[in-house]
Write a protein that binds this DNA or RNA. Structure first.
Lengths: 181, 181
DNA sequence: CAGTATCGGTTCGTTGATTGAACCATCTGT
DNA sequence: ACAGATGGTTCAATCAACGAACCGATACTG
């Protein structure tokens, strides 16, 4: 159970990274999960924020649910939402660390950089460092203890900013995992 | 320069993670980089170890070189090898953290788990923890200071093990980045 | 109660990527 | 001169991603 390779696999690569990528390595998947950490829960919001084809989003969500990374549950009659499971929440350090690499080595023209701060920190909090650790208290805060904010405020110019509800909400500081928008 | 999205892009996703994935998010790319950290440097060895189509490997290596993650350089007349740049080496924490997630949540039938130990540790060394940190000395050791070894020794049975030179070399403990095989 | 909107999809034709097999040019060793 | 290794390129077939259109269930509106 759960040990069978799913979807597009990397057969004969007997390796933890390959098995992680079988779940999380397809196009769009990590961006979907990023949005889940931000607090996005609904199909329509993911679509609006990511510009992802509906069929692809359906497929990715099904893969993630089957792998136990997301849980699908009803929030109203006939409406479902997707939330991170414990297995999914445990992806946070990997996601953060990869984003941090992008932040340092792939800065785009529009900026679009973000910081994550340990909001519930007994030592006052600071922006997360390598591995998702809080430099102030030395622990690895759970996503629910983090607040994120844009570093470069309002691009204004260049390419015009996105205007879906999620993008608008994320222009202000936001506590991770609290429902968005 | 360098700020332009490469290859399969995620347009309008003004986000560090999306920009990282434009370089590192295509199929096979992270497995190629894993092998580079192990010390694999040659086209033929990557091919034999990964079972990746030649054309795809050519394409991925070119993308990584263009992004400044790998450097291509001659090691003999008409022969080139690929080595990690500083930007590439900086991917280690992200790679390790994702592999660790796979290790914890996606254990395969053959095992195939690996540990990474801080071999050059002043405090005696220990297997790396979250974020790639050494629990003994508290630092983030560079890949060159690490030794890796298989946790489940010799699958013996189930599916027969791979028999390329790289797989054979990796069955014994190995210092990262030292040329393989 | 008919009409309309929203949500979470499915279906389908087109475009683009991945695959595996075949071929190729350069250099090395014998 | 020839064989083998290396690092590719080319090509047809398959498979995934894309975007537009359609769908069924549940509200909400007049």
């Amino acid at each position: 159970m759960g040990a069978v390779p799913l979807g597009r696999d990397y057969d004969r690569q007997d390796c933890a990274l390959a098995r992680a990528l079988e779940v999380v390595g397809e196009r769009w998947t990590l961006l979907v999960l990023r949005d889940c950490f931000f607090g996005v829960r609904r199909f329509a919001d993911l679509r609006a924020h990511l510009d992802i084809p509906r069929a692809v989003l359906t497929d990715r969500l099904a893969t993630l649910v089957e792998a136990g990374v997301l849980e699908r549950r009803p929030y109203a009659a006939g409406r479902d939402e997707y939330v991170l499971t414990d297995t999914g929440l445990d992806l946070w350090p990997a996601l953060f660390t990869l984003a941090r690499w992008g932040d340092r080595h792939r800065v785009g023209p529009g900026g679009g950089r973000r910081r994550f701060r340990h909001a519930d920190c007994p030592a006052g909090g600071a922006d997360l460092a390598t591995g998702g650790l809080c430099p102030a208290c030395g622990t690895l805060p759970p996503p629910s203890a983090l607040e994120t904010r844009r570093l470069d405020p309002d691009t204004e110019g260049e390419r015009e900013a996105r205007d879906d509800a999620v993008s608008r909400a994320l222009r202000r500081p936001h506590r991770l995992l609290t429902p968005l928008p």
